[in-house]
Computed example of a mutant assay.
Amino acid sequence: MSSALLPKPQMRGLLASRLRKHLIAVSLMSLGIILGFKFGVSEPRKRAYAEFYKNYDATKEFEAMRDAGIFQSAPPKKK
């Protein structure tokens, strides 16, 4: 009588069916994390670097650092 109320447990293929479900779930979650990192971190960082280097003058920065006395091998210009 009690066997009619409870379904039989799955004995064969239980691991394979659970692994298949978990593999799909993990794949979708990792894809979401990858896309979130790309559009949440990488792309804003690329835009920030592009904006910074749009008006960056390396020669002017070097001259400012040299005049400040940062470099030992490049003494400041005499005025």
Results as ranks from 00 to 15, higher is better:
Val41Arg: 07
Lys46Gln: 09
Phe37Ala: 13
Asp67Trp: 02
Leu28Gly: 06
Ala50Asn: 08
Lys78Ser: 12
Ser17Val: 13
Ser73Lys: 07
Phe39Gly: 01
Pro9Gln: 04
Gly40Tyr: 02
Leu14Lys: 15
Arg20Val: 03
Asp67His: 09
Leu35Phe: 08
Leu14Phe: 15
Met11Asp: 12
Ala74Glu: 14
Ser42Phe: 12
Glu43Asn: 09
Tyr49Lys: 12
Tyr53Arg: 01
Phe52Gln: 06
Lys46Arg: 11
Ser3Thr: 09
Leu5Pro: 00
Leu15Cys: 06
Ala68Val: 03
Leu23Gly: 13
Glu51Thr: 10
Lys54Ala: 02
Pro44Phe: 01
Lys21Ile: 09
Leu19Thr: 07
Thr59Ser: 08
Ile24Tyr: 07
Val41Cys: 05
Glu43Pro: 00
Arg47Ser: 12
Ser27Asn: 12
Glu63Trp: 01
Gly32Ile: 02
Leu14Gly: 07
Arg47Phe: 05
Ala25Leu: 13
Lys77Ile: 04
Phe37Lys: 11
Pro7Val: 01
Gly40Ser: 01
Arg45Ala: 14
Ala64Pro: 00
Glu63Thr: 04
Phe37Met: 11
Thr59Phe: 07
Leu23Val: 08
Lys78Phe: 09
Met1Ala: 12
Pro75His: 04
Phe62Asp: 02
Met1Trp: 05
Leu15Tyr: 11
Ile70Asn: 01
Pro76His: 03
Leu19Arg: 10
Gln72Trp: 08
His22Trp: 10
Ala68Asp: 04
